[in-house]
Design a protein around this nucleic acid. Sequence first.
DNA 1: AGTCTATTGATAAGGGTTATCATTTACAGA
DNA 2: TCTGTAAATGATAACCCTTATCAATAGACT
Lengths: 150, 150
Amino acid sequence: MEYALRDERALLEKYLRDRGLKMTRARETVLDAFLGLESHVSVEAVIEAARRLDPGVGQATVFRTVKLLVDAGLAREACHDDGSRLFEHAYNHAHHDHLTCTRCGAVVEFIDPDIERSQEAVYRRYGFRSSGHRLELYGVCPDCAAKDAE
Amino acid sequence: MEYALRDERALLEKYLRDRGLKMTRARETVLDAFLGLESHVSVEAVIEAARRLDPGVGQATVFRTVKLLVDAGLAREACHDDGSRLFEHAYNHAHHDHLTCTRCGAVVEFIDPDIERSQEAVYRRYGFRSSGHRLELYGVCPDCAAKDAE
DNA sequence: AGTCTATTGATAAGGGTTATCATTTACAGA
DNA sequence: TCTGTAAATGATAACCCTTATCAATAGACT
Ligand SMILES: [Zn+2]
Ligand SMILES: [Zn+2]
Ligand SMILES: [Zn+2]
Ligand SMILES: [Zn+2]
């Protein structure tokens, strides 16, 4: 965990140095805040976490830094829910799709090789070059279904 | 086509009557405007189309009515793009997924039985009851790829 | 330390959507 | 057809999330 944090910080530093940008205290704070949160967080949540580490961090800075993290490959936009976008860790967190419970909001991350393969076939069928996809399955999780049954 | 319009209007009227709502001129206008547009339209586009039929239609009314159309099963939210949501016809327009060119915005509607089947398997694997999904494939279409090659 | 430029945070502005509310309208019943 | 009542309308303001503006600050290099 400690090592992972260091890895990710080094990645961000390299990304910044490579393009003449600077590693600042605010960016450290936002990175730490983001890494300390679990998957699928809104910028709002990152703002709160960042201000727990350092009150006085501007929200504009958090928006800007999250965008940087995405560009640097440390974060990835997950499933922009209604309204606000959600982000998740991208470093050491391979591609996956989401199965979401529409009742309680529970999210299962899954990867299905058959689906991935079939998607490639669709790209070939229409002559498209692939550049990523988004698959969100919606349903009712076992827990919520059990509550219905009562 | 004429018949289809009548069908859809009858559907909306039934939907409204069943819950004590009223069929109004504004709702007729928005319905006609929406039906006159082709797939994947923003509310903005519906507002423009509606005002071509009847200037003075309030934008709030269009937003409200599009929501009604979705509830009535006449419209369906397609792929909420960056920012604004997009809607498409739902009546006599079976389920399908989207393959979108990230360069020119071209959209191919497709249905892949293998993918649909694999998705059902995912639902079973995690014990979820299915309630719909959203699959968006992104890539570069043949035309844009050809331009790249030049 | 000094210079130069990126970055910051407060604030305003932006775009899409929804809430408010006085007025108008649809529609069931008399 | 007339009326009463509740729903619907449209103008407007409010809302949320996000981005732009900008004077002040703080890295990174010499
Ligand atoms: Zn659930
Ligand atoms: Zn995820
Ligand atoms: Zn294209
Ligand atoms: Zn479509």
